[in-house]
Design a protein around this nucleic acid. Sequence first.
RNA 1: GGAGCCUUAGCUCAAUUGGUUAGAGCGCCGCCCUGUCACGGCGGAGGUUGCGGGUUCGAGCCCCGUAGGCUCCGCCA
Length: 475
Amino acid sequence: MFRTHHCNSLHKSDIGRQVTLAGWVNVTRDHGGVIFIDLRDRQGLTQVVFRPEENAELAKQAHTLRGEDVIQVSGAVAARPPGTENPNLATGDIEIIPNELRILNRADPLPFPLDAEPQNEDLRMTHRYLDLRRPRFARNLRIRHRAAKATRDYLDSQGFVEVETPILSKSTPEGARDFLVPSRVTPGKFYALPQAPQQYKQLLMVAGVEKYFQIAKCFRDEDLRADRQPESTQIDIEASFVTPDDIFAVTEGMLAAIFKAARDIDIKTPFDRLTYREALDRYGSDKPDRRFEMEVVEVGEIFRNSSFKVFRGTLDAGGVVKAFNGKGFAGITIGQADELTEIAKLHGAKGLAFIKVENGEWKSPIVKFFSDAEKTALQSELNIEEGDCVFFAADKWEIACQVLGRLRLRIAEMQKLMPAGETWNFLWVTDFPLIRTRTNGTRCIIHSLDPKPKTCRCLTRRNFLRFAPRLTTLF
RNA sequence: GGAGCCUUAGCUCAAUUGGUUAGAGCGCCGCCCUGUCACGGCGGAGGUUGCGGGUUCGAGCCCCGUAGGCUCCGCCA
């Protein structure tokens, strides 16, 4: 047998047992005499102790071991001397006293440390097999595995049938550019890779499958972003003879099953629901982060007859005036104000108006244009108090929402409003528009959800999820 | 297609206003070290500051170009 146990499985009850382990040298602690090796395999770590007085030849070999050497060790499980147990290690009560050491493969010096989060993506990709050895990846791969298994088990229990659909297919009229694969048999012709299994699942519905799902790869040949990649995986579901509430319930149940299986987390169902319109109005985003407050408020009515031309002019032209209160942010620095102004301009605003409240005084170049009645109304509408900083956007509805949504997120970061640790805040965003107007004025029908990996990253990092069911996609 | 930022030792970073021989931690090599778990101690090697040009008495630092990377806009949703 190559190995008798994995590196997480030996405990006090195994003391005296003769075992064989195999894996990578995680770290060496060479005291000149006694040498400690942490041996790592896919399951965990086990300490191996070489003592020259017990086996001089083995100790001599052990001196030469370096990080990531691959070895096989046979020996006896022994109790650690009292006081030297390591409570941070699952196998911290025991250690291996080897009588045999086989060095299976020596490792070159590492191009980057495995125990720190490497910055250089290029380097990580060049040595991907090393990158994947880091505990975070081992963990993520298993979370993904358990999530996929829970998805299949749950949807199976609900009567859904998993169907694989073709990857080589014909281009479909969705918005994104297709990846193209040249056909050998028909020169000059190309296959397209699917942006989503849209046509196929609708075909299955017409064919009477009634309940279909697939863990589907989707491809889009568009320029990259931090939260976008050219291929991604989505859980694709289609059902016949159902109501929207049926789909909400199935999806909530599936997510609960996934979180339980993958992370042992119990999530609260049913989820809150917000319409698309409401999400933009209150949070300036179709994927609102509701882990903190700072809601956007419509203040247009206050300035309907204002003498402040910027607001009045926007309203007269059919635009809106919206604002939110950055609680306790009157200490905003010039650098922060500049950055926020840049963000506002980047998303279409002409500038950024804000009011600081310090020493009972409203400080801003625009305050002098406000009447007392307007100030009173603002104060009550936005709950303005000493130390606050109120941010305004006056523009077309979409732009005002987007600008304030971006500012809201950045200010939350500046003020560290996101709760530390894991919090889960699920939300359905419903009633998405079915037709989208591009910036060049042309319009297109929205066919399917954008399967952004940010949604996946949210699971592990930002801890909130966006779901936007649309009738065209789900029913 | 466009814009911004970045590029200094194997890795992560530093280097005052343009000024001596470009430093530190980790890693690597050597020596020492018998209970560590990020072991410790002493010593050493390792650099065309991405590349090309320019300004200057003098450039890691300023300017121009170029390559690569990251982020954003367009695009995508």
